[in-house]
Amino acid sequence: MAKHRGRGTVAVNYPIGMNLGGDPSQALVHSNPEGQFTVALSSIDLGQGMKSVTRQIAAETLGVPVGHVYVDTADSDTGAQCMGSFASRGTHRVGNAVIAAAKEARAVMLAAAARELEVNPTDLETDGLGNIHVKGAPQRSVTTKDAANAAQFKYGESVSGSGIFLIPMSDVDVETGEMNTVSCFAHCAMIVDLTVDDKTGEISDVQINSAYEIGRALNPKLMEQQLVGGAWMGLSHAAYETTEPAYPSRDHRPFDFSSYVMPGPGDLAQHDIAILERPAPDGPFGGKGPGEMCANPVLPAVANAVFDAVGVEIDTLPITPERILRALKEQRGA
């Protein structure tokens, strides 16, 4: 038995969102008389943390505690239109729409507070703890609850706002074929080290070192979780899972979660991550999106590492032990 260590590297420029006739998302924000805000989105949180991040963005913009904001997602009856949760666009597109909507609602709340305190709205600031006070005179203060209540019961104002963020469609230049597809890119560099057993084709002892440039980590723990979990899924796509293992033959499809192969908790890769923050000029508080980019780089990096380890190029996914072994036998035969 011989085991061979190999290293593969990869670098990624990842476009945030897409450009197919424009890329809009919308958000609606309103407050109840208690000063508790609801953000209504038709956007979907599919586990990546959209609810958490849009909640933070709304609270930060409104100037209220995170606990005063509830985000209602995934209902196209109550939420305004969103293109969807794909193309790593959620934080960037939906986050910007939430900022726009929350700004409108904040303006109504501050206007009511200004009338209560008998000052100009531009002289007011929020402390993020549920209070609105006069700049430089924190004792002249009203709670966001009282402001929201006054707006609705005394002044007949709706503490609400709607927002849309649109990346307009970019036409193709007929002369050059050039188009401005997106406004914002995230970046990644990754190194994968692994061991290949040249008798079985098995990959083991995977170690991943990566650096992700994601604008700003709006929620660092969520970000880390998404990068670790996403890279794990990338490893699964690279070396394990497929619905068509014998493609194009339809025979031998998986029939349960043992035959649909996924790495188990004993197949974990050690993964060290560096997060670099270069705030995006048009991102919500500088945020981009790590979504798909956390999984994608693992695939070419694994292919490159296998080539480095045993000299065979596998160009079909997943890179199974069987494919590696067949390639090794061909290489030896040649």
Binding site: G229, W232, M233, M262, G266, H271
Partner: peptide, 22 residues
């Protein structure tokens, strides 16, 4: 750590990569 891995080996997780669970 190995005993934890064994104990949860029948519980699939597709999001976290198991690491935070362990």
């Amino acid at each position: 750590r190995d005993e934890v891995i064994e104990a949860i080996s029948g519980n699939l997780c597709r999001c976290t990569g198991y690491e935070p669970i362990i």
